[in-house]
Write a protein that binds this DNA or RNA. Structure first.
Length: 738
DNA sequence: ATTCTTTAGTTTTTT
DNA sequence: ACTAAAGAAT
């Protein structure tokens, strides 16, 4: 046994890593070396010859976490870990279902619906049932279905006692049938179906139980009921081949109860798996004492805790700095000033995080950072595989794999436009309903199956026949092409490329389509199975690591949720106001306040050396100025840990930093409708800006509102007040700056 | 079939 | 205040 593997570990870490074949719950506090323990445990088991990688199953919550864990194991251990199963719950269940699709009652090419696809399917079903979507909002139906599935219930299992729920149940049933007909599964279905597969199929169950000797689970506090039951089933508690289940979690960092995570699973785990001992990792290697003690004091206010207190061998460090701002702009400019000072002191920008409760808060921060010319990156937001043009392209690919996919068909049957309007679509849907078939089958039937395939690539590209032809061409003779070529040809054949080449302002979209080809190429490189079906599953399950633009030293902006698991030298936590944090909506939910407090705890424990807490007396929200009182969480942190940078009571208040209404209130006679937040230069001439006042020979003075195009095609929209708002070609309009 | 107008929703989010 | 999506008008 190499000694380096176990060097520098504390007693509890060592105990967890070297534990013999038994199930254990590891309560791992923030910054206690949780990931290290998990990866070292796996490396230790393999290196000491207790188990082959083939018999290990490791579960994480995100693909990112799985990837990181694999990298770290490889760094510890020069051993081939191919046989090991490591991934997310959904990824692993997907793997099971692919391997045993027949036993699971699925077509070989079954596709995965993401959240948006699922909602679209539900809307479609509600429409076909002529349901009033005012009375039954699609989102609520979606929530009902996912909730049922995540507690392991099929439509047949749900018991309802009121007429409203009884309707919801009908929709659930219709949705189930529709998904089966189309051969698609949603995220919850991946779990439920593989759970049912293992329940029903004794041979498979025994096979996997025998195979997986050691099961490890990260972020266990985030598991929902179905995931827990899946785990229990696979582990085979109480049977001859019961696996040793090693779960790591922190009840204080459970912040996903709102989407079904159940910390009760931790207590149940102790009971169901006969846990004799809980190992607590309580030494924190991240933060200075003041930060940690403040966080501990805060979380003490929660009653539902398993009990655990973090300590550090580091010194107390600095107190937490609290700033009470006049308004949100003032708060942002305070943050900018402090960032500048930190940067001068040598703290890299990438080691500074700006955290907030809600995404809407990033706006003012971004605006201020941009004005201050500080580079920043915002995490979260639109992902690559969720972009409209990418989803269109994926829909075509789905139709190649499985034309029965109504969802995909509806998305692109008239995109690019082929002259198929609402009328013809309705006819098609009626036909499909009558024959109880897919839309594709109905479309085929309508065009006359024989004729279309041959004539398709000659001329007739419009109408339903044109669409059928396009798909026929894609489905015939492309089977043996490499994935990237399929994607490339599809982009041309579908007309997507052509469409985005002609439409103005589509440079980004075109680039994304090219990027999709690149994604296919690198997917074939990395994945074992480079098939189209595998690629489509990848697109659904790993909606996208947004890692573009990395490398540059930039500030990190994200929600507190997104910051879990990360650490920074300095953290700015803004918006500490009642109503915002804790969020007002949380107060109506059961245990909502406790979850908000855990969120606060997570935010505080991200900081290694310096933690700023800030609040604004007034803040723009939904277009209205709101006046808030300080967050109760500030009261829950003892004064001895805090250093107020401005009087907490508001007396002796200075307005020096604050924006007054003069900045916002004065408007010229001409109203600026749309402001570019960055006041960026028009790319055309370099001298024109949005918001700039210009003069026109005939229309007089006006303000530039917007622009379009570039080069000789560049146009600007100018509001001339009395003469109205006009679009003008820059080349001819002869505008002059005023 | 395109384009304009109205309306709803706006805590957190991965798979 | 702002956006996206549904509805109405051309």
């Amino acid at each position: 046994m190499s000694s380096s593997l176990l060097a520098d570990l504390n007693t509890q870490q060592l105990e967890a890593i070297t534990l013999p074949h038994q199930s254990v719950l590891v309560l791992a506090g923030a910054g206690s070396g949780k990931t290290r323990v998990l990866t070292t445990r796996i490396a230790y088991l393999i290196q000491s010859g207790q188990v082959s990688p083939f018999s290990i199953l490791a579960v994480t919550f995100t693909n990112k976490a799985a990837k990181e864990m694999l990298t770290r194991i490889h760094a510890l251990l020069p051993v081939n870990t191919r046989g090991m199963w490591m991934g997310t719950f959904h990824g692993l269940c997907h793997r099971l279902l692919r391997a045993h699709y027949q036993e699971a009652g699925l077509p070989q090419t079954f596709q995965i619906l993401d959240t948006a696809d699922q909602l679209a399917t539900i809307k479609r079903i509600l429409k076909s049932l002529s349901v009033d979507d005012k009375r039954f909002p699609p989102r609520q139906v979606q929530w009902f279905i996912n909730n049922a599935k995540e507690s392991g219930q099929r439509a047949a299992d749900v018991i309802v006692d009121d007429p409203f729920s009884s309707h919801l149940l009908d929709f659930y049933l219709a949705y189930e049938q529709q998904c089966n007909r189309e051969g698609v599964v949603d995220f919850a279905e991946l779990l439920l179906r593989s759970y049912e597969l293992l329940t029903r199929n004794e041979i498979l169950r025994d096979h996997y139980r025998e195979r997986f000797d050691y099961i490890l689970v990260d972020e266990f506090q985030d598991t929902n009921r179905l995931q827990y039951n899946w785990l229990k089933l696979l582990a085979g508690v109480g049977t001859k081949h019961a696996a040793a289940v090693f779960v790591v979690g922190d009840d204080d960092q459970s912040i996903y109860a709102f989407r079904g995570a159940d910390t009760g699973n931790m207590k149940d785990f102790e009971r169901d798996f006969g846990i004799s001992k809980v190992i607590k990792l309580e030494q924190n290697y991240r933060s200075h004492g003041n930060i940690l003690d403040a966080a501990n004091a805060l979380i003490e206010n929660n009653t539902e805790r398993l009990g655990k207190n973090l300590w550090t061998a580091e010194g107390m460090g600095e107190p937490l700095r609290v700033y009470r701002a006049f308004n949100d702009f003032d708060e942002a400019s305070f943050i900018v000033d402090e960032i500048r000072a930190l940067h001068v002191d040598g703290v890299p920008l990438s080691q500074i995080a700006l955290l907030y409760r809600a995404n809407a808060q990033s706006r003012v921060l971004e605006h201020t950072l941009f004005k201050a010319a500080l580079p920043y990156r915002v995490y979260g937001g639109m992902r690559f595989f969720e972009r409209m043009e990418v989803k269109h392209a994926l829909a075509y690919l789905r139709l190649i794999a499985n034309p029965e996919d109504d969802n995909a068909l509806l998305r692109v049957i008239n995109f690019p436009a082929r002259g198929i309007g609402a009328r013809s679509l309705e006819q098609l849907q009626d036909e499909a309903r009558q024959q109880n078939s897919s839309l594709w089958a109905a479309a085929l039937h309508r065009c006359g199956e024989a004729a279309t395939a041959v004539e398709s690539d000659t001329k007739n590209k419009r109408g339903v026949a044109g669409f059928v032809g396009v798909i026929q061409v894609m489905r015939q003779g492309w089977e043996n092409l490499p994935l990237a070529q399929i994607v490339e040809r599809m982009l041309v054949q579908s007309g997507l490329m052509g469409h985005y080449q002609t439409v103005r302002e589509s440079a980004d979209r075109l680039e994304n389509l090219h990027e999709l080809v690149n994604a296919a190429i690198s997917f074939v490189h990395e994945a074992e199975d480079g098939s189209l079906t595998a690629f489509l599953a990848h697109a659904s399950l790993e909606a996208g690591e947004h890692q573009a633009g990395s490398g540059q030293d930039a500030l990190q902006l994200m929600t507190i949720h997104a910051s879990k698991g990360l650490e920074f030298h300095s953290v700015f936590l803004s918006g500490l106001e009642e109503g915002l944090f804790p969020h007002e909506n949380s107060l109506n939910e059961k245990n909502g306040l406790e979850e908000e407090r855990r969120l606060m705890y997570v935010a505080m424990t991200r900081a290694r050396r310096r933690l700023y807490l800030s609040l604004a007396q007034s803040r723009m929200l939904h277009g209205q100025t709101r006046y808030n009182i300080p967050s109760r969480f500030l009261d829950e942190i003892p004064e001895k840990f805090l250093k107020w940078l401005r009087s907490p009571a508001g007396d002796g208040f200075s307005f020096d930093r604050s924006f007054t209404t003069k900045d916002l209130g004065t408007r010229s006679a001409v109203e600026v409708r749309k402001k570019d937040p960055f006041n960026r230069e028009l790319p055309v001439e370099g001298q024109w800006r949005i918001g700039q006042t210009v003069a026109h020979v005939k229309f007089g003075e006006g303000v530039i509102l917007d622009y379009e195009g570039s080069g000789s095609d560049a146009r600007v929209q100018v509001n001339f007040g009395r003469a109205g708002t006009k679009w003008l070609m820059l080349e001819y309009a002869r505008l002059t700056p005023v």
